[in-house]
Amino acid sequence: MLTVKILGTGCANCKRLEQISRKTVSALDLEAEIVKVTEYPEIMAYGVMSTPGLVINEKVVSYGRIPSPAEVTTWLNEAQKAA
């Protein structure tokens, strides 16, 4: 079971990242929980200053941009193997 966290206060970019993550998770047919982190102290605790941020199993994989679905796929697969 993977935990995917979207760090961001809910602007357009954060929503796009959430969409990409959801699609990728279902395309890979993974068991994953997708959590939206919207509180500033919690976002900052990951060291992320520029949103949106993407955290997979508590590891920050990207921040300040919207990664491509291909990248998200790679990260999800890596996390799945490590788990």
């Binding site: 206060t9 357009a12 970019n13 900052m44 200053m49 300040g64």
Partner: peptide, 10 residues
């Protein structure tokens, strides 16, 4: 993006 202004400030 404008929604990053607060995290940036902090």
């Amino acid at each position: 993006c404008s929604c990053s202004a607060v995290p940036l400030f902090i």
